[in-house]
Nucleic acid binder design. Structure first.
Ligand SMILES: [Mn+2]
Ligand SMILES: [Mn+2]
Ligand SMILES: [Mn+2]
Ligand SMILES: [Mn+2]
Lengths: 218, 218
DNA sequence: AAATATTTTTAGACTAATCTAAAAATATAT
DNA sequence: ATATATTTTTAGATTAGTCTAAAAATATTT
């Protein structure tokens, strides 16, 4: 039996270790989970006892293969529900994350497999993130962050890092969506802002925006 | 803030009081919730403090109007999800209850209203139970239990009391579904079993079956 | 290499929900 | 009306998850 809280910790650890592949430290988990380091220590002990994680005191934590399997399954559910909400229930991409955060914990294999089929086996969620299949396989998407794009090159927007409503609404209001074509015009060394050209406009975006937008060269 | 457990208790109290309209006693709740009377006492104190229930020691409990509102909203969600599972995800009527038991606790008004619209505002769930609308209104369905039907009369099957997989599978295997036409042929005084005629067969059902099948005279 | 800063763990306490066992209240039977 | 049975409540523990404050370990500076 795995609890909802354990699932959320496992998912957080998975996401934190999929960037840099090393062990994940306590404070990073605490900040991701919006909790205190002492609570994290308690939880990673429990995850370790239940064989979802490997952990040595003061040395950080990694997921076991079973822990990874659990994490990927929750991510699969989360992203499938997000697709459902956008495709079938008229949610916009900035409204789905919070609800999916709860729906991802519903435990029924039939439910998720039938949902997958109902949605015609989607491979990407509304934020451009790949959806694992039943066996947990998914392609690592080819992408770079706008902050590291080259001046003069043209890209397609393929994803976002921040899925908060605030950020996504900002993109909406600037007519940036998945699939939007972007040409990098100028990088301002003073504040690392970037001027980009869209189909019908040119805008300047701040560094924090540039760090959260994923592009693919075309 | 209302917890999942509080919601389940409120729903149980609502169901227990919708039969006989009097106060609901501790042991009845304990048996419905599969817990102990002492746990129930603690919980109804809490529900009372939070103004979901009225309670005087040793005198049983009733829901406040706010408590009823909460109960009806959970029932609305439960039944809409059941319709979704059957209509869209190929679940059979004996598979939906358990999953809906969890889905009913997802908190999002937009989710449930959009789901309602997506399903084209259904008025009955897969077990023949009425679905409350957004304002909490639903028609009390006209029905009698097979155990009290008259010999010689013809009825339509309109609902079930027991929604367990076991009972529903029994009905499936005997070709009884919502809408099935049933004529009562004979009541056996010895064991209260009843012989009924279906379209292509005659079968004898036990008293416990007869108590769980709802009919409407036609 | 020692001093200082940061990170992590431990100790002890809290809340929600549960349990068992015993006490108190209410209902039923003689 | 008294004795007995049943129901309900209380008292005290337990588990999951959280917190604060203090101690221990590790990392960084000087
Ligand atoms: Mn979650
Ligand atoms: Mn997403
Ligand atoms: Mn429930
Ligand atoms: Mn139902």
């Amino acid at each position: 039996m795995i609890t909802l809280t354990e699932e959320n910790y496992i998912k957080a650890i998975y996401h934190l270790s999929s960037n840099g592949e090393k062990t994940v430290n306590t404070n990073a988990i605490a900040s991701a989970m919006q909790t205190k380091a002492s609570s994290v220590t308690d939880m990673i002990k429990k995850l370790s006892e239940k064989n979802y994680a490997d952990y040595k005191k003061y040395q950080g934590v990694t997921l076991t293969s079973e822990g990874k399997r659990v994490a990927i399954n929750i991510i699969r559910k989360h992203r499938l529900w997000e697709v459902f909400l956008v495709e079938k229930l008229n949610f916009s991409w900035d409204e789905v994350h919070e609800v999916a955060e709860h729906l991802e914990h519903i435990k029924s294999d039939k439910l998720i497999d039938e949902l997958d089929a109902f949605l015609e086996f989607p491979t990407y969620d509304p934020h451009g993130d790949p959806i694992p299949d039943k066996e947990g396989n998914f392609k690592h998407i080819e992408k770079i962050v706008l902050a590291k794009a080259e001046v003069g090159s043209t890209y397609k927007c393929v994803g976002v890092d921040d899925t908060s409503s605030k950020f996504l609404k900002y993109l909406d209001s600037n007519h940036i969506a998945l699939g939007t074509i972007i040409t990098v015009k100028h990088k301002e060394p003073f504040d690392n802002s970037i001027k980009i050209a869209l189909e019908h406009s040119e805008i300047v975006v701040s560094q924090s925006v540039a760090k959260n937008l994923y592009l693919k060269k075309i």
